[in-house]
Structures are given as C-alpha cells and as structure tokens.
Amino acid sequence: MIVGNRKSLEEILELVKPYKKILLLGCRECITVCAAGGEREVGVLASELKIARKKDGEEIEIKEFTLERQCDVEYIEQIKPFIDEYEAVVSMACGAGINYTADCFPKNIVLPAINTTFLGVTLEQGVWSERCQGCGECILHLTGGVCPVARCAKSLFNGPCGGSAKGVCEVDKDTDCAWQLIVDRLKAQGKLENYEKIIEIKDWSTSRDGGPRRRIREDLRITS
C-alpha cells in the first residue's frame, strides 16, 4: 500500500491561514489503512484546526468528507456539487489523490495535509516499512525476494557496501542491511550462486527518471 504521514498541525494551520471555509477531504484507501488520512483522521484534524483557530480568534468552518478513493474520477466528482462553496480543499489522500483532486478541479485551491512516504507493508500495528520504489523493472527473482533498490540505502545491485555490520545498515541501526537479508535468503534457498552473477547496469527509464509513467490496457478501454 501507499504509506503517508499527516503533516504537523502547525504546518496545516499555516497552509489554511488565508481561509475561513474549507473542505477537508479524506480517502478510504491505503491512507486509511495506514491511519493517516481516513474518515477518523479527517475528524481529528477538523477538531484540532477548529480549536486552534478559535483560540486565535479566527474561527474556521470545515466540511468533513471522505471519498472511497481520490484516485478515480467517479469518486472525486462527488464533491462537484459543493466544492465551490469552500475557499480551499485540504486533501488527506496520498500524493496521487491530492494531484488528481487538483487536476479535476483546476480552478480550486487544493492543499496537501499528507506527506506521502513510500510503498510498503504493515509490520505490526502502528509500524509500516518500505518494500518497493516502483522502479518499473522488478528483479526480486534474482535477490531472493528482497529489493536492493528500495531496501539498500545506496540501491546497490551487486552486494553490500563496506558498512554492513552484524546485519545492520551503516545508515541506521534500526535498518536491516538489505544485502545481508538477500544473502541469508539465497543461502536458505540453496541459491547463493545467484549472488555471483553480476547484475548489469539498470535501465532507470522505467522508473521516475523517465518522467511520469502511464499504463494503458487497450483491451479495457471504453472507446466511443
């Protein structure tokens, strides 16, 4: 899933400073699962904003609304009937959702309340961890299912750097060395010889470096 963090109250207060009437827009997808921008978080942020603004003698009117998804136009259109009643939309979706809401209503102000961080997994209640960078060319079959692009601080393709010590990454003592994990995994699978193959220079054009990416499935398109 896509994981994100809510921005601090101070930062959001600064973003909405010029406005007296806002639409606070949540999303029921990934950002709900990672407890950053779902219906409950919309309620919490609305209360925090109202209390803070009241204290400053600058009351704010907030409409709370949570969409099924902010990455599909049929859901985003649900706000069409009333979006113009508000001076700004504060989106609590991931970066994709914030962008798309803004794309759908180019004349309206759409502000981000979430910092989108990574594609990851839930390790335990309240703990999420990155697993993929969406580079567009998966090599997990070569690395025992552990991604060196997303999980090595230097995205090294041919083994650990000199700073790998006791299974820990030199950058952060709470981060596993991805290459230690890869070697352990390959060993457990009896495939350590995979390690000896040089992984060739990567084609980054399938990654963000090639510009915004699109995926088209002609068989699914509805053409009129």
């Binding site: 083994g159 299974g167 352990d184």
Partner: peptide
Amino acid sequence: AAENPFGDPFEIRAMRLGKKVKA
C-alpha cells in the same frame, strides 16, 4: 576498487571481490 574483508556478511566477501574482478 576497494574491498572490505571485515564487512558482513563475511562469507560473500571473497565472492564479492570475484564479481569486481569479473567486471
């Protein structure tokens, strides 16, 4: 190139050098 004979995992450190030599 450089190599750290003391880095972990130790068991692949010579193999890692082998990759550099092959390159």
